[in-house]
């Protein structure tokens, strides 16, 4: 509860700041044109978002967002703090349902099926749309258990007593999965000798990569990443960026980042959100960074705003 209150307070603060900036600059706020966001990527659409509005209580966090996210590509979301990127991401796997104050309107289609219609199995949805949170949240379990948690609970790996007694357990499979996932998240070398140590003993950056590994182990179709490299050094960051590009071969990746360079390096298309929860521009990454249509986006990218 108190956390929500605290966030609500920041909201107002952010809003006021934003307005103060635009009024002191003496500009009239530019209108967002629909054609700036009506980008059509090549390839199949994996996620189609239509007229998405999100309220937290009386706060309007996302305003009428529509965008199509193509399959097997990397989509970057950028924008100033508090503009609703995480909120947007949480709409895609319905994690917003878990926030009592959140109220979502609009549709999100995964492979043409609305995930907000009645009767959607949230457990299935989240198996297909995985998520790496903004702040690392490993379980207070061993590193190995963290990685194999998802597959175990889904019954893909059975290491229970019964399985061991009846000879159905495949310990080798678990080992392989743990190794592969940690390897991809660029963590294997650092933890290979301490897989049975508690994950809470890892550094912040290591925890972040562990959470990525944990998500990969479930093998989702869509991977949502909320600032996956915020606590990482340049070497680990570049490994994660390689991973993201690599993942795009098979998966659909949506990544929130505060680093323009990162967005420019890894993503195929970029969506820019600005204060007020508005999607201002969505286009090819190159286009956004070289020649954005919106003046505000240009200001934001060149560091004049936000």
């Amino acid at each position: 509860m108190s956390q929500t209150d605290a966030e609500a307070v920041t909201t107002t603060a952010n809003r006021t700041d934003g307005e103060a900036v635009s009024t002191t600059a003496g500009e009239t706020v530019e209108e967002t044109r629909p054609e700036w966001t009506s980008y059509e990527a090549g390839g199949e659409t994996k996620l189609a978002v239509e007229n998405l509005d999100v309220h937290y209580g009386d706060d309007h966090a996302l305003t009428d967002v529509s965008m199509d996210i193509p399959e097997q590509s990397v989509t970057a979301l950028i924008g100033p703090s508090g503009c609703g990127k995480s909120t947007f991401l949480r709409c895609l796997n319905r994690m917003n349902d878990r926030i009592r104050a959140a109220n979502v309107d609009g549709t999100v289609e995964l492979d043409g099926e609305d995930v907000y219609q009645d009767g959607v199995d949230l457990v299935e949805l989240r198996k297909r749309v995985g998520m790496v949170f903004q702040s690392p949240n490993p379980f207070p379990k061993s590193i190995r258990e963290n990685v194999s948690y998802g597959p175990r609970k889904h019954g893909d790996i059975d290491t229970g007593l019964l399985a061991r007694l009846t000879g159905r357990a495949e310990p080798g499979r678990e080992e392989a999965l743990v190794e592969r996932s940690l390897e991809r998240a660029a963590l294997w070398e650092e933890v290979r000798d301490r897989l049975d140590d508690n994950a809470l003993g890892l550094s912040g950056g290591q925890q972040q990569r562990l959470c990525i590994a944990r998500c990969l182990a479930v093998d989702p179709e869509v991977i949502l990443m909320d600032e996956p490299a915020s606590a990482l050094d340049p070497i680990a960051t570049s490994k994660i960026e390689d991973l993201i590009e690599d993942l795009a071969q098979d998966y659909t990746v949506v990544v929130v980042t505060h680093s323009m360079q990162q967005a420019a390096r890894v993503s195929d298309q970029t969506a820019v959100f600005l204060t007020g929860g508005e999607l201002v521009e969505y286009d090819d990454t190159e286009k956004i960074f070289e020649n954005p249509e919106s003046q505000r986006v240009e200001d934001y990218i060149s560091g004049k705003f936000g």
Binding site: M95, R98, L125, R126, K153, C215
Partner: peptide
């Protein structure tokens, strides 16, 4: 949240 997001 972490567990729910893994589809558990």
């Amino acid at each position: 949240d972490a567990s729910a997001a893994l589809g558990v």
